[in-house]
């Protein structure tokens, strides 16, 4: 499984609430049998005009956002369809972390399995991050998993929660299937009982 320790990057603000996975990657791109190249289709309907050219006013297309690895998203990010193509598309574009006040359950699970760190912050911090990015569009944040903190340019560190299991898996790149399989004997016992 993909590892996550730390990322320092500029931030792309996408304040829309309830961004659903159909927006993250529309269904017509789900006819693939592998995971590669989905970054092209990320936010496709918001990102491209009908003729395939880029919409200049969409945040992902701004010049100073190229190469950014942190998405600052609105409440309830990733609702709707269970498609894991959503985190695949986000990581394939280059994102390593998404910050929001809340994530839909299945998206949250899927993100963790792909080294895409969902960072949950409270409303005040959420708003202050949007304010910061508006004020200084090129501001860089550091997200550190071991210390569970977001460090601002002035050195202030904001804490965020994550469950121990996911944290350990991400830090050491441990595979969750490996964890299940390590209990194989118990699964067999369960099956025969």
């Amino acid at each position: 499984m993909a590892q996550f320790t730390q990322v320092t990057s500029r931030v792309i603000p996408l304040p829309n609430r309830n961004v659903d996975t159909d927006q993250i990657i529309p269904a017509r791109f789900l006819k693939v049998t592998d995971k590669s190249g989905l970054g092209e289709a990320l936010f496709s309907d918001w990102r491209y005009n009908a003729d395939g050219s880029e919409k200049s006013d969409f945040v992902l297309n701004h010049k100073h956002h190229q190469g950014a690895q942190i998405l600052l998203a609105g409440d309830n990010f990733g609702c709707g369809s269970s498609r894991e193509h959503a985190p695949w598309a986000l990581t394939s574009w280059g994102f390593r972390s998404v910050i929001s006040t809340s994530f839909a359950d299945i998206f949250h699970n899927n993100a963790l399995k792909n080294g895409l760190l969902p960072v949950i912050v409270n409303k005040e911090i959420h708003q202050s991050l949007f304010d910061l990015v508006e004020e200084i569009p090129t501001v860089a944040l550091t997200i550190d998993l071991a210390s569970q903190s977001i460090t601002l340019p002035d050195g202030d560190a904001l804490k965020f929660p994550i469950d121990k299991f996911s944290k350990n898996c991400l830090l050491s790149g441990i595979d969750q299937l490996g964890y299940i399989m390590s209990h194989d004997a118990k699964i067999s016992t369960y099956e025969t009982s």
Partner: peptide, 17 residues
């Protein structure tokens, strides 16, 4: 409802985390 990584988990182990 589960993601594709979990589909793989269940195929291999018949279990879900």
């Amino acid at each position: 409802g589960i993601g594709t990584s979990e589909v793989e988990h269940v195929l291999a182990s018949q279990c879900l985390l």
